[in-house]
C-alpha cells in the first residue's frame, strides 16, 4: 500500500516536474502506438470489410488465421519481426532493428488481426438488406462499403479500441525489437519493465499510472465517438 501511494505521489511529481526524458518517453509511446494503430486501421478495416461483405472462397481459413492471430503472444510476433529485420535476416538492409520502425512493424502485426477480424464480425452483423437498399439508392461499390461500415461503426470503433489496448500495453515485442534504448526506443511499457527490474517500484508505478491515464483519455474519446454514433 505504501509503495502504491508513493508511486502515486511520484507520478504526480513527475508529470508536473516537466522532466524532458519523461515527455520524450510519452511522446514516443504516442507516436509508435499512433502510427501502428493508424496503419492497422488503414489495412485492417478495409480487409475486414471486404471479408465480411464479399464472397471470399477462403474466408473460413482466413477467419481462423485472424482469430489465431488475435491470440498470438506478442513476443512471438516480436521474435518473428526481430529475425526478419536483423542484419542477417531478409530485410536486414533496412536497418530498422532497434528503431521505432521495428516497433511499429511489430505492433501493426499484433493489431491487424484485431482490426480486421473484429471489423469483419461487425460488418457481418449489419442487415444485408441495408446493402441492397444502399445500392438501390444509387451507391457505387465503394459507397456501399462505406455505408455498411458506418452502420457497423460501433463494432468498428470497438475493433479499434481493442487494437489500441492491445498495442499500447504491449511490452514483450517492443522490448525485443526496439531494445529499450534510452531516448530512441524507450516507451512507457519498456521503461516500466526496466524500473521494475532495478527495483525502482515507485517510478514503475508512476509510469504505469501515466500509461493508465493515457489509455483512459484515449478510450474515453473513442467511447464519446461511439456514443455519438449510437444516436
Amino acid at each position: 500500500m505504501e509503495e502504491i501511494l508513493a508511486g502515486l505521489a511520484h507520478a504526480l511529481r513527475l508529470i508536473f516536474s516537466g522532466d524532458p526524458a519523461l515527455y520524450e518517453i510519452i511522446w514516443l509511446t504516442l507516436q509508435v502506438t499512433g502510427v501502428a494503430l493508424g496503419l492497422a486501421i488503414l489495412l485492417g478495416v478495409p480487409c475486414g470489410a471486404a471479408l465480411g461483405l464479399y464472397r471470399v472462397r477462403t474466408r473460413g481459413l482466413i477467419t481462423v488465421l485472424l482469430y489465431t492471430g488475435m491470440g498470438l503472444p506478442p513476443v512471438v510476433v516480436g521474435l518473428f519481426v526481430y529475425l526478419i529485420l536483423s542484419r542477417s535476416g531478409p530485410l536486414g538492409t533496412l536497418s530498422w532493428l532497434f528503431t521505432p520502425y521495428a516497433m511499429i512493424v511489430a505492433q501493426v502485426i499484433i493489431a491487424f488481426p484485431l482490426t480486421a477480424g473484429l471489423t469483419m464480425t461487425a460488418v457481418q452483423g449489419v442487415d444485408p438488406a441495408l446493402r441492397l437498399q444502399a445500392r438501390a439508392l444509387g451507391a457505387t461499390g465503394a459507397q456501399e462499403v462505406w455505408t455498411i461500415l458506418t452502420e457497423a461503426r460501433i463494432g468498428v470503433v470497438a475493433a479499434i479500441v481493442a487494437a489500441f489496448g492491445g498495442i499500447i500495453s504491449e511490452v514483450g515485442a517492443v522490448m525485443l525489437v526496439g531494445g529499450n534504448i534510452e531516448g530512441k526506443t524507450r516507451v512507457l511499457t519498456t521503461a516500466i519493465v526496466l524500473n521494475t527490474r532495478t527495483g525502482d517500484f515507485d517510478l514503475a508505478i508512476a509510469l504505469g499510472l501515466i500509461l493508465l491515464a493515457i489509455a483512459f483519455i484515449i478510450n474515453g474519446g473513442m467511447l464519446f465517438l461511439q456514443r455519438n454514433a449510437l444516436e
Partner: peptide
C-alpha cells in the same frame, strides 16, 4: 519519426527517468 534528428542521450544515474 521520419525526421532524422539525433536525440541527445539522457545522462541519468539510477532512476531512469530524471532530468538531463
Amino acid at each position: 519519426t521520419a525526421t532524422p534528428t539525433a536525440l541527445p542521450p539522457t545522462v541519468a544515474p539510477q532512476p531512469t527517468v530524471a532530468p538531463q
